[in-house]
Every structure is written in C-alpha cells, then in structure tokens.
Design a binder for these strands. Structure first.
Lengths: 339, 339
DNA sequence: AGGCATCCGGTCACTTTCTGTCCTGATACC
DNA sequence: GGTATCAGGACAGAAAGTGACCGGATGCCT
C-alpha cells in the first residue's frame, strides 16, 4: 500500500486546518523524517498548490492561494455546513449561478456518508427560511412555497449523470400519475423549481414542478442525453409555464425620486424606474400577496405610495391595514392614531 | 516526480465530476494501463472512499458515499459557488452552526486564488439578502444591517490562526480609534456579528461590532491564544452588549390555539406558547420594527391578533396600516390619495 | 443458453520512486 | 554572532509502482 499518497493528503489536510505549521510539528504528525516532509511539500508545490515557507525562529509552512483550487479536505461538520449552505443557496437563488451551485451540490451529495446526510436533512429544515422563500417548516397553510432540498439534491445528481427517474406526479388539476422520465435540467422560476425532462411514455418534453413530485426513485439506468442548450431548456420551461403558476405582480408608485429610492432599497430596488423627476415606479413580483406586501414595508417611512395591481393584492393590503390598525390601537389604551 | 499521487487525485476528480465511468474511459484519460487503474481504484478504496464497480456491458466505476468525506476536487466555478453560499449562510445564520460554517469558510478562503476571490466579492454583493438580514446593497438609509462578508471571511481566518490584527474602529459614540487586537471569536447576536478580541493596548477583552470596523490589516504575527471556552466568549459578548444595540421585541396575542398557529407558521412559530385553549402568545424579536411587522403578516388571514410592545413598534404598525389602507383604497376607486 | 463486454485480481520482471541519513547552505530573528 | 529554522544535493537500500499476461467472475443482450 502506498503510504505516500495518503500521507500527502494528510499533509494537505493539516495545512488546511491551520494556517501555520512548523516543520517539526508536521514531522511529528506524519511520522516521517524532515527530509521527506520537505519532499512532500515540494510535491504539493509541483501540483500547483501554493505553500509558502518562512525561515527563522518563527518559521514554518503556510498554505496560500495557489494557481488552482486544491482538493478540499473537510471534516464531517464542515461538509455538513457546506451542503446546508448550498442547498439553501440553491433555494434562495443567485441569479445565473444556479447551475454551478447545483453542480457543486451534486458533487458533495454524491459522496456524503449516510449519517452526515441525515444531519443535513435535519439541519436544512431548521435553517432560516429565505426572504419569503424556501426553508423548512412543515406548515401546510403557509403560503410560502417550500422546497424539498433533499429532492433538489437528488435531481441535480440525476440530471448531471443522465440517470432515468421514476416518480409520481400530481398535476395542476390534481390528477396523479406515475412517470418515467429522462431528466435534463433544473430551472428556477419565480421562487419555484421545475424539472425539464423527456417523458418516456409521452415521448415528449415535459416540465414538472418539484413540489408536486413524490416517491422519487432513481432507476440507476443511464440514458444517452439529447443535445439541449441552456437557452433551449429555459425557453421550454417558460413556455410550459406561460399559462400556469402565475405569480402576483403589482406596480408601486412612490413619491420619491428614483435615485433616492434605489439608494434606500439597495438590492431590492434594482428594477425601479423613474416616473418624472420626483416619482418612481417600483415593479414588484411575488408568489403570494404576503411577500409582496412585505416589500412595501421598506418604502421609507413617511413617504407616500400607491399600489396598482390585481384586486387580490389590494384586498390583502386592506385586510392587513385593518389588522395592523387594530393591533396598534388595541394594545395602547389611549387609542393612538396619528392624525 | 510522483506521477502516482497526482494521478490518484485526478482519478478522484474524474469520479466526482460524473457519477459513472467505464474503465476504458478512465484509462484513456489517465494514460495508464488498465491494471494500474484497478490498482488506483483499490488504493482509493483503502483510503475509505466508496467506489462501487459494476460489471457487464454497462459496467463501470461509481463514486458512492464512503465512510469518510473524500477530498473535494472542485472547479473554479464550484469553489466560487461554495464560498458565496457559505458567506451568505454565515450571514443568514443557522443557530449553533456558526462556528462550523466559519471554519469551512476559512478553509476555502485560505486557498482561494485571487481572481476567484474577486468574483466572489462581486457575487456576494449581488446575492439575495436574507429575510431582513445581510446581503448586498449599499443603501445607507436602509435599516437592515449589512454584513461585509469579505471582512467576515478575513476575521474567521485570523481567529482560527491566532493572527494579530490592526484596524480602525468607530465606537458607538462616533469616536474613531486605531486598534491592535488578538482576535478570538466571532459571535452573531441578533443579526449582527461581533468580534471578541483581546485589546493589546487596553490589556483587556473588547467586543467590536463588525460594521464599525474598517481598514483591516492582518499583521501576520501570531500570538499565543489564552484559553477561552465558547460559553465564556458568548457570555463576554452578551455582557458587553447588555446596554447597547438592543433589539425590538413584542408579544403577539393571537386568537388561535397554539397547535394550529404553530402548524401554520412552521419555522417561524417555534417559540409560540399557549395562552388558554384557544389563544396563543407569539414572542417576536427583531432588529427593526420593519422586520417585526413582516412576521405579523403571516398570521393566518381572517384571524385577529393584538400586539404588546414598545410604543415604537405600535407607532410603526399604525403608520403602516395607514399606508396600506391608503394604497389599497387609492388605486381601487381611483381617488388618488387617502382621506 | 450462448456470446460478449466488462470488471477482478494473481504473478512476474523491471523500473521508478521513496525514504532516511548525512551534510552544507541560506535566511530570519534575537 | 548565535541559534532556530527551512533548503536541497548525494547516496544506498527498501519499497512501490507499472505493464504484460493470464484465467476467472459477473451481468447484459440476443
């Protein structure tokens, strides 16, 4: 057996766990002579990992940024933290980076020992839910869509590896059916995830909403993927969704110059457009009126605004207004309203 | 030079990038004989990584969950995705797992080539901000605290490696000063991060709020850390904060049995307690009234509630109520303004 | 059932690398 | 200058890695 490969990995692991190491310490841990250690360091350097060394009485080795990313040697805990992070990131969405996030997630999911996986599933459901998105809880009445990150991980793997899947699906009309598909792409649209796949039974592309899938069974049968560009995929999904799963949209007209509003809102205000010199229009889109109303709260205090949108939204606002007013008045005996 | 170690890593990398590999393909890529490949696989198995093999015409190798987490061999993109994920996770907070997340973050930050780091910094500021937490935007008037994830990463490294730091700090009273400290722990409290460190000039423990630090300079001088338990650290920080940075709290009395409310709220409702058979109390805490009010929106529609809390909160609610009402009424029947 | 493609692992001879020891140098800090 | 640290050449013996060859096992397909 090759002591040397595993030792090299261990060295890398040590160097990653603390920044600074004296040769002496490393020698003790690895159980080799000092000369061999130097040779190991040399080897790692040849592989492109930046190991800096310092002489003198506080000398030692230090793993720095090199030309490439070295293999990450993680403890179990760290692996869990990373997996949880990736799952929630996939959920929260980082526009344009979904694909990469999923591929990183797939890499970890693939090698995750079972006990760790259980810890992740547990943790992920305790994680702070995103801004009106994702995360845990098992509330049924709660309007925030929940994303089953476990499912997401499994699907990411299957897409990457072109592995045929079996699952049951409940479509928009409540009809359940068993499906056998060849999965291609996961596409996030408006806080929900969709799977684009080739349906073997219908011999055509189909789009599946993740929260309507159940009983996923990876068949371990590989298929030959047809060519499909990212653009194609997105287009197909968007087309499939054109007439369903519409989200709630509204326009908020704020009595504030565009720049001022944008500065106040930061990231949320990226779509704000000016409507004259002292007024802005803030287009909002959300999956539920609740989330839409939450955004309104960030309009600077004391500033007036007006909302244009479907009756559903306006009714919701009126209802919330009433409840807020009642709550505020009810507790304060001196019925405080500002006039 | 050792072709074998690097080849082993490359094999691992291949196995991680796709699930399934035929021996033939691997042999072609690695440029060795089939026998040697088998030996390499054997070596990896001995190291505890689960490589499954299948015979027959669709045979091949497959990296599965093993006993331990294998070294992760990431592409640049994946590394970036992971780093971004970890930064935002540290920000969003996962109670109890902060430490692990930071240690994983430190590991990656340490070895991140400069160009990748730049991409991360750019991306992180575009990421979706959490629920009233973290994330990007540079708004000054926005009440959500912003967290400089770059700073967080650098501090995590310095804590781990016991590296003395220099920075300038602006305290609560607006007084700026230059500090030299020995950093020990990063502690998140109520959506903000604090650094617990030993102040070399004052010869005592000090707590620094991250968003008040600037011009961080890692001295690369190591220090001998004094013993300090996690509990100790947390206690010190909490004590230091006792009289500043208070957050907003309130109690919401909801006319709904506890279980029903909890089921509806999911994660958010973890602190709900019963108040009689048909009423519940939902304690809320947030850094700003905005965030507190957002939670109220999740009380099931049609259910009445009452809020007990500081005047600040009630006033805020009253104001929002008025704005909502105005927005709802204003657009509906086309009378532009309220009253 | 038979054929074929695939993985399995033993043996052998040969080559390459790895390792520890010994040594001389370079560099940094005190 | 003294000391602690890393650097790296030389050498010889031990250890490993490697390819070629083989008969065997297993699973899929016809």
């Amino acid at each position: 057996m090759a002591a040397t490969t595993s030792r090299t990995l261990e060295l890398l692991s040590l160097l990653q766990s603390h920044r600074h190491w004296a040769a002496r310490e490393l020698v003790d841990r690895l159980g080799v002579s000092e000369r061999t250690l130097r040779r190991d360091v040399e080897r790692l350097r040849e592989l492109g990992y930046g190991i800096e060394s310092m002489r003198g009485s506080a000398g030692g080795y230090r793993l720095e940024a090199g030309t490439g990313l070295p293999p990450l040697l993680l403890t179990d805990d760290e692996g869990v933290a990373i997996a949880v992070g990736l799952r929630s990131q996939a959920t929260a969405g980082l526009r344009g980076a979904e694909h990469t996030t999923l591929s990183a997630l797939a890499k970890i999911e693939q090698v995750l020992p079972a006990p760790l996986r259980r810890r992740i599933d547990a943790l992920a459901s305790h994680a702070t839910p995103g801004p009106g998105g994702g995360g845990g809880g098992s509330a049924s009445g709660r309007p925030t869509p929940e994303i089953d990150t476990e499912l997401l991980g499994a699907l990411a793997l299957a897409c990457r590896d072109s592995e045929r899947l079996r699952f049951s699906y409940t479509d928009a009309s409540g009809q359940a059916s068993a499906r056998v598909v060849e999965p291609y792409r996961l596409v996030p649209v408006a806080r929900r995830w969709y799977l684009l796949a080739w349906d073997r039974q219908r011999d055509d592309w189909r789009t599946f909403r993740l929260d309507r899938m159940a009983d996923l069974f990876p068949t371990r049968v590989r298929f030959e993927p047809k060519p499909l560009s990212d653009d194609d995929a997105r287009r197909r999904v968007e087309q499939a969704l054109r007439h369903r799963d519409r989200s709630v949209t509204a326009r908020v007209i704020v009595e504030l110059p565009r720049d001022e509003l944008v500065e106040h809102l930061g990231w949320y205000g990226r779509d704000v457009v000016a409507d004259g010199p002292s007024r802005s229009v803030w287009p909002l889109e959300a999956d539920y009126p609740e989330n839409l109303a939450m955004a309104l709260m960030w309009v600077p205090r004391g500033i007036r605004y007006r909302v244009e949108g479907p009756a559903e939204v306006l009714e919701f606002l009126a209802e919330q207004a009433e409840r807020f007013a009642a709550a505020a008045a009810g507790s304060k005996n001196d019925s405080r309203r500002r006039s």
